[in-house]
């Protein structure tokens, strides 16, 4: 699979180049608030990518990622402000805390199937929402947590939002490569088996319950790390972010970009976050517009933006195969970075 490795490397290099270009040409010219929106979108992508693993690969619809995000953020904030734990350690501990919670919840809830599991995760989100808003000793209650320290990496302090952008972009690139790799591993295929046909999964030696728990924990850790990043990036955390409505927004981000594609999900995330900025002219009609847009998108492209693109590629390939008969089987079983 040399060709595959080369292709991934090429993708990574061009993405890095794109990040540098974006940083130098676009980000420097944007207002601070706009950069903030983009950065937050990149941070949310950690949460959304966890949901991609869960839903897109594993077919498990979990509606409590926002709680993992919140827990990561508040643990990181609490450790740093109250216990003076250095920032990098606090961030890792935040991710760990979310992972532990996810392990516990996963073991408890993943035995259930279908709507029951979804309802369980909705319950978790509401509990999280209430705890974050009221448990003042830990989260600062309605005031939130403030005064979280700055991140210092190799002697460089990340002060402004513009400092943060390249770091977050590189993180997101690494994350996309990770997701792409996971899809090609045995674990990724086990997940797909669980998603599409549990009976087939059992008969192909996949421990369905364990696979689901592992991916749930993985998604939890990703969301928790995203939460820690959010805490350090913004310096303050307010409990009003981690509500069920935000969770629904995450689902929309994922479905909008394309549930089967990490890059699509990234676009969806940035788009949903940036939409209020783009559609300022509509201000009071913004939500109405947003609702209509979601309905139309789901009806006409249920696989999201990436789905449309993929369909076009497939159509092109079918046409090409028609022109070159007998070329059908020579593709080789490797996947495009999709």
């Amino acid at each position: 699979m040399k060709k595959e490795t080369l292709r991934v490397l090429l993708f990574a290099l061009s993405a890095l180049f794109a990040i540098v270009l974006l940083d130098q040409l676009v980000i420097t010219n944007l207002k601070n608030s706009q950069v903030n929106i983009i950065n937050v979108a990149l941070i949310f992508f950690f949460c959304v990518s966890g949901m991609y693993l869960l839903l897109g690969l594993g077919g498990v619809l979990s509606l409590c990622s926002v709680t993992m995000l919140g827990l990561g953020a508040f643990v990181c904030g609490f450790l740093n402000t109250k216990l003076n734990v250095p920032i990098p350690a606090a961030m890792l501990l935040g991710a760990l805390a979310s992972g532990v919670l996810a392990l516990f919840l996963g073991l408890l809830l993943l035995k259930l199937e279908g709507p029951c599991f979804v309802f369980g995760t909705i319950g978790v989100t509401y509990i999280g929402q209430s705890v974050f808003q009221n448990f003042a000793a830990f989260t600062g209650g309605p005031n939130g947590t403030g005064g979280i320290g700055k991140l210092v990496l190799f002697g460089y302090t990340f002060k402004t939002f513009k400092d943060w952008f390249p770091l977050l972009a590189v993180f997101v690139l690494l994350l996309i490569l990770l997701l792409h790799r996971i899809k090609q591993t045995t674990f990724g295929r086990s997940l797909m088996a669980v998603r599409d046909d549990a009976t087939a999964a059992y008969c192909m030696g996949v421990n369905v319950y364990r696979t689901k728990v592992v991916v749930f924990v993985l998604a939890g850790v990703l969301a928790g790390f995203g939460g820690s990043l959010y805490a350090v990036h913004n310096g303050t955390i307010s409990a009003s972010l981690f509500t069920f409505n935000t969770q629904l927004k995450f689902v929309i981000m994922l479905m909008l970009g394309g549930v089967m594609s990490p890059i699509g999900a990234l676009f969806g995330t940035v788009l949903v976050n940036y939409l209020p900025e783009l559609a300022r002219f509509a201000n009071s009609y913004l939500n109405l517009l947003y609702g209509c847009l979601i309905v139309l998108l789901m009806i006409f492209m249920p696989m999201g933006l990436a789905g449309i693109l993929k369909e076009a590629v497939v159509r092109y390939r079918v046409q090409r195969n028609k022109q070159l008969p007998g070329d059908g089987g020579k593709g080789g079983p490797s996947d495009v970075v999709s």
């Binding site: 045995t186 295929r189 797909m192 599409d196 046909d197 087939a200």
Partner: peptide, 17 residues
Amino acid sequence: HMLTRSTVSDNMKLGTD
């Protein structure tokens, strides 16, 4: 019982896995 939303190669690699 195939993985209805996956590609042919993913389906077959499940066997090798």
